[in-house]
Design a protein around this nucleic acid. Structure first.
Lengths: 307, 307
DNA sequence: TGCCGATATAAGGTTTCCTTATGCCATTGA
DNA sequence: TCAATGGCATAAGGAAACCTTATATCGGCA
């Protein structure tokens, strides 16, 4: 479903954040390289758009109202991912003049790279990253050609000729709509039940489909496709609207699960490993920028465990 | 720091998401209530802004490139919080004609309410919520006057005349810049050390300051303010730029800690409880909408534990 | 080859947004 | 109480962005 109009402008939200930080519209305007009236007008437009009084101008300096404080806070959740998006696209554009070339599978690039870039930026602003995306096979090719310093792929085993290490766990999960019967199950789902249920799956040839089918085949079980879709988004929409249970990477559904739009079904006697593996050349040792990134990733995964 | 220009328009990101979902610019345009050329132009502008080719138009229908898929994915992290912001402001505006009136302390309103509203919206679209914000004392007044059905406050004990239950834990933490010495400590910080260190604190009278001072006083310890600031944002900026260690609610710093902009210092022999408490009238039982919300909150807290 | 659906381009008008100039108000200190 | 100062709003004019309708172009398909 599209965004409910009217949509506040992100630059206005960012400006409001600066006003909160600096305590003055004037100063915020200067920092954003616009004139003071322009800033004043943007904030006014924002207030009209949201139909809320965000600033109290009756005492000389502009003071945030409680609604203003709340909006600033909520805006931070919008602005942080937007900054990550900008860093991500920047890395995609940056072909030359970078000191760290990263190759990543689609899943890693989509779900993990932006956060890592954000943290790398704050910890080591000097490092400029370029990003190449592809499937795992493609990434391995890039690495063996020496066109990237470091790579991230999914897969149970290390590719030959490259050193590798698991940096993050991931696995395929069964997802259903929150209204589905399976959300009320008291017993975990068995592999056998999964085999006889028509499922919403990614198309043949995708990494997700391959992992799922091969793991099931190892148990001597078949898969029964109900629907085959070519993208993660399409699959989520289908499951969400009640088409039936679907199979996707846990990373790919974490947001929807958190928001209650999808539910994960617990599995009894089967699991689909899809761990994420850091790979690098055996011949060439990791350079300092690459080492910084690796260290940061390891820190963030231990921190995630603590929380 | 302000957003790095040029900033992509969120409506364009939303449109791209719809294109990914529907597989056609035309269909996406219809869903967004704009003409097909307008949609085409927005997407073109987005591609120019990001300097990336997001769509492949060479096969009749528009097909997302791998960069396009990544941008859609990154956009979801932006659009979801934006939807929460819209729900939050909507609840702030909605005075009458709602079937669930919520009173919440600033901390709860800022950090937890939007997520709950989002989940409530998807699970029970019929429920219209209105939100009143204030400090904990103010919320209790609203509740006892009967001007809200349900409230959320911080505090160690139940206010008299109201039933209450802890729904979420929270506590004050010591935060420092990532470059601070304390990030390299091998031993936890003691209460005594905290007492002799000049700290960046919220102003006297704020809930945070009260909890901090009273807990320290109970130990017979004093507090030594280095800087007193009137807002969470200002305090974070000060600590981030190296002013010194600061004291804030864990909820208030989780984003910055995740992004590595701030670090939490482990405490040895002291803790500052600030649990969040659901309160309701003893005379009036919870109505069905209130019960739905409570159930949802409890589900989400157990789910958070599982992850 | 010819039709059809989908997208791009063109033209025109409206709206939005920014900048400079200026006026008003609150706070401050003598 | 009065002037000075810093800060915000308003006004006017011009530039840029955006949308709509109409039309051309292109790829797929029978």
């Amino acid at each position: 479903m599209p965004l409910t109009e009217p949509v506040p402008d992100v630059r206005s939200l960012d400006l409001l954040r600066s006003v909160a930080e600096l305590g003055s519209i004037r100063q915020a305007a200067i920092r954003h390289n616009i004139s003071q009236p322009a800033a004043s007008m943007r904030l006014r437009t924002l207030e009209l758009t949201l139909e809320l009084q965000l600033l109290d101008r009756s005492h000389g300096r502009a003071q945030l109202t409680s609604a203003g404080v709340a909006v600033v806070r909520w805006s931070e959740e919008v602005l942080a991912p937007l900054r990550e998006l900008l860093l991500g696209t920047q890395a995609l554009r940056a072909a030359g003049k970078t000191n760290l070339r990263v190759a990543a599978s689609m899943t890693v690039a989509e779900y993990l790279i932006p956060g890592w870039l954000q943290r790398l930026r704050t910890a080591h602003p000097g490092i400029l990253v370029s990003l190449q995306m592809g499937n795992s096979r493609h990434c391995i090719e890039i690495m063996t050609r020496g066109d990237a310093d470091i790579g991230f792929i999914e897969g149970p085993r290390a590719p030959r000729g490259l050193s590798s290490r698991v940096v993050r766990s991931d696995d395929l999960v069964v997802i259903v709509a929150p209204s589905h019967d399976w959300t009320h199950r008291t017993t975990p789902l068995t592999a056998k039940e999964l085999a006889v249920t028509p499922l919403v799956l990614r198309e043949v040839g995708s990494g997700t489909r391959e992992v799922f089918e091969s793991t099931m085949r190892l148990r001597g079980l078949d898969v029964l496709p109900l629907l085959e879709l070519g993208s993660t988004t399409a699959l989520k929409s289908a499951v969400e609207s009640g088409a039936g249970p679907g199979i996707l990477s846990r990373l790919a559904v974490q947001t929807e699960v958190r928001d209650g739009r999808l539910a994960v079904v617990t599995l009894a006697d089967i699991s689909f490993d899809r761990s994420i593996r850091l790979v690098w050349s055996k011949e060439r040792p990791l350079g300092p920028p690459a080492k910084q990134l690796v260290r940061l990733i390891e820190e963030s995964s231990t921190r995630a465990r603590q929380l």
